[in-house]
């Protein structure tokens, strides 16, 4: 079952086509990488999938909802309810501690729960640093905090934009290990990267060039894409991080 369907999507800025008739699907529980050189349209497609930009043409159906037809307010709700965002530059709020940064996502989603936020930080190995401000955390720690924030509301889709772009090798491994665990638990991941080693961790790699879909590469190590993710029982349906129990709708 497809969680995401991108159909003939184009994005046009004046005379420039940032995206040109791009189509692909992402199944529930699938880990997909989007690769391409600078200016290939990676970020544009991420923004459109994430409901932060609109397509000029085509449709994007996320979890059964055509988000290209939704208004700004509904897009905000869709981002809040269905998407977890991970950024290259972490984007933590600098005056809030790590645990408070995680709770901010809960706050806008439903109800803040400090215990749950601490558990999410423990999951990414940051429990001891929960009361530290972002400026007191290393880059790797900030990224793990960002991941904990993205996961806290059990999103249907995790969108990560160059999540290891600002990390050293050791921290890159830690982040990829967390992604693997999430994938094993049924999370649906789309990771934008220019790092071939990161892309190779995904089941499929969608390669963009000049705004067009150049090719889709299956990672043989995984076999058929999405094979490890039961269609009827994805990450969100399972309650995200399994050890934390069922997802709460507050």
């Amino acid at each position: 079952m497809n969680l995401l369907e991108v159909k003939n999507v184009s994005k046009i800025y004046g005379n420039l086509k940032a995206l040109d008739d791009v189509s692909f699907n992402v199944k529930k529980g699938e880990w997909v990488a989007i690769m391409g050189p600078s200016g290939s349209g990676k970020s544009t497609v991420m923004n459109i999938i994430g409901g932060m930009d609109t397509a000029s043409e085509g449709t994007v159906i996320l979890d059964g909802v055509d988000i290209t037809k939704e208004k700004d307010k509904n897009l905000t709700n869709i981002r809040r309810d269905k998407i977890g965002l991970i950024f290259q530059q972490f984007h933590l709020i600098n005056y809030l501690t790590a645990v408070e940064n995680v709770m901010v996502a809960q706050y806008y989603h439903s109800m803040p729960d400090e215990k749950e936020a601490l558990a999410a930080l423990e999951r990414v190995g940051l429990k001891e640093r929960a009361r530290h401000l972002p400026a007191q955390l290393s880059g790797g720690e900030q990224q793990r905090c960002c991941i904990a924030r993205a996961l806290i509301n059990y999103p249907a889709l995790i969108l990560a934009d160059e999540p290891t772009g600002n990390l050293d090798e050791a921290n890159e491994k830690k982040v990829l290990e967390i992604f693997k665990q999430l994938h094993d638990e049924g999370a649906t991941l789309i990771v934008v990267t220019h790092d071939i080693e990161v892309a190779e961790q995904a089941q499929r790699t969608i390669v963009l060039e000049h705004g067009r879909l150049a090719k889709i590469v299956e990672n043989e190590a995984f076999g058929d894409s999405g094979a490890n993710a039961p269609e009827e029982e994805g990450y969100a349906a399972k309650g995200g991080l399994g050890q934390y129990g069922k997802p709460k709708r507050r």
């Binding site: 994430g50 809040r80 989603h109």
Partner: peptide
């Protein structure tokens, strides 16, 4: 601006 954008990305409404 980045913090505001982030909050909106996390699902904060204009009212929030």
């Amino acid at each position: 601006r980045k913090e505001i954008g982030l909050k909106k990305a996390l699902g904060a409404s204009n009212g929030s």
